[in-house]
Design a protein around this nucleic acid. Structure first.
Lengths: 211, 211, 211, 211
DNA sequence: TATGAATGAGACTTCATTCAT
DNA sequence: AATGAATGAAGTCTCATTCAT
């Protein structure tokens, strides 16, 4: 019995992680497709190919599972490495970052996360807050840090770097993100994204390049 | 007697409208507080102080009631009169418009509509599309029209006026709207909104003022 | 006022009957199409082109309205005049009656009454009983009376005339009524009805013609 | 342990079936007593002593449950073995079959199935059609097959065997089934059924016995 | 008398969650 | 740990009936 038990534990260790990941993968798909309320635990179980009961072995309830997904999503965003080398010039850096960012939020299915979080933010404000802090605010801060470096380097002249960072990110999304997230337009082409980001960069530098 | 009869008709007319309005008012509150799925017809009936059955006398189903509210919201947006007099100079006009727009989307409870619509756009894409077209796209078009006039007047020099209009609107919301809509920050002060809009205007003109 | 009141009464007298008939006509259609449970008072009101409230002026409730329809249907059946002249020979009379009867029960929509009554007979046995007595049993009795006359006339030799009457009626419907009432076949053609009734008559006379 | 595990599986197997049967038994009772519309899923759940939710674990919806009961009823009919040995003489065979058939459709509660199906045939024609095909038409065909054999054997002389089969079945029910199904009379006594079937057989043979 | 707005009980169905195995 | 059968609360919607006018 003891041996069997040990064996179990070992196996479980391994399976624990894989099962957990398996559940998260299935759940993300379903949550992002259908929203928090639209997703049912049954559908999630089917998508994850586990029994409904198993869901509750790993997650206390539907909300906990959902938040675990967002946690994962936040990590994934954090892992996208932007090249904010303080020594690189602003134009190159901004264009590169703007495009990467735009691709991130406008990727097929990329609107889903934001939509889904916004949906639930109404009833679970903490979820919304945390998502904003971990995903959106974090990007702003990293860009803001870079901008400060370029100000120090004399390339830029900016009053509020946080505001400027936010401005650039908003500019990059102009005319593309909102139609996409409201399903009024398909995901934009790479070509169009490049154009919009270039326009954003031009505008940004026109305003903030040190004279 | 005839007069009394007429009066009755009027009263009925009024009460009819008032009942519908009563339902819409209650429903908006509940929908905006809890989202489409979170709101139950029972709760809405209670909030509107009518019976559940009465809801279905005026609206075919939950979706119809929801869309009626969005319709109303769209009308409300449409009735906000922006002064796009083609003869006025861009700086004044943009500052004024930017502030009015920002106040509109960041008013207490103003994030709810957008949140709620985004939420449902996942499963009811038509609703999202229509809302985008009626509310967001419409504002862009009106601003774009004004910009074209200023280009013709020689004050501005713009490649794509639609993109520029979208850019200005995004700029105006920078650093304020997203935290607000994700409940990560309260509605911004008038003071702060003014500052952000002025920064947006500066940036816009730095890029697009005719040299 | 008194005059007006009198005028009212007069008008009402007339309208009462016409409205009542109007309601019955609409209600029959709906009840026969949809069954007792499937028919809603709203639909009936629409079909009868009166308000829902008016229904309750003339009939206490849904059941009362339904029974009034059956009453009417029974009267209508009773008014179908079969030629049971005791002097006519059996072969002619039976063929004629059989065909008329078959046409009555297999007319398009003719299965509806029976279906509908059977449906409700489960929960309102009185309704079923009364319908059987007024419609089906009555026909049997009239035929039975005729058969007795022909027995007396020496043309037929029958032990139980009631049973024989019932047998002839069942024979007449053989292979046609059941498929029709279960919607497994459309209403039979006149040609086929004639054939079946002739076969029934042959069979009946083979058994009951006096030797 | 393995054995225990096997036992478990068996138990589950059994309980699975037993739960389904439990539901079907409760549902049949309620459906037959109240008709399709009159029966509520709540009442059925109570009669079957399961929760409302469990009903939906085993059956997709109310209609599916209803059709499962009809299926069962059809099987039951199909399992009634009539002795249609082609070598047996017609008189014996017909009397035996007629009585068995009459007992089947006039058994206490036996009218319910037919009533209930007829009722629903209005709005769910497929259900009616299928029931007719599986239960009524099937019996006709089996009898028809036997009759053909007796024609070949020279005992009978029949133009249309299908019609003749239907005629015999209708004759057997004469004066008994309709009053019973409309609740105008209780289930007939065995004595009376025998008499009616004998009369039917006499009549049938008078018409179709080879001369 | 005739209306139709309003009601509330009750129907079907879904689903998050629990529990015995 | 994993299962999946079972539950019951809650949701959307329908409809017979009432009532003020």
């Amino acid at each position: 019995m003891v041996v069997a038990s040990d064996e179990h534990l070992h196996v479980v260790q391994d399976e624990d992680n894989s099962k957990r990941r398996q559940i998260l993968d299935g759940a993300r798909k379903v949550f992002m497709d259908l929203g928090f309320d639209g997703a049912s635990m049954g559908e999630i179980a089917r998508a994850a190919q586990v029994s409904k009961g198993t869901l509750y072995v790993y997650f206390a309830d539907k909300s906990a599972l959902f938040e675990a997904i967002l946690e994962q999503e936040a990590l994934r965003h954090g892992q996208v490495v932007f090249n904010f080398d303080p020594a690189r010039d602003a134009e190159t850096t901004l264009k590169e970052f703007g495009l990467a960012y735009l691709q991130l939020v406008c990727r097929p299915g990329g609107g889903s996360a934001i939509r889904t979080v916004m949906a639930i933010a109404e009833r679970m404000p903490d979820v919304g807050r945390r998502y904003y802090a971990r995903v959106l605010d974090k990007s702003i801060n990293r860009l803001s840090g870079y901008l400060k470096a370029r100000v120090a380097a004399g390339e830029l002249e900016i009053g509020e770097c946080d505001l400027a960072a936010s401005q650039f990110m908003e500019l990059s999304k102009a005319s593309l993100f909102l139609p996409f997230v409201f399903q009024a337009a398909p995901a934009p082409s790479e070509q169009r994204m490049t154009e919009v980001v270039e326009s954003a960069t031009r505008m940004f530098l026109a305003a903030y390049r040190a004279r």
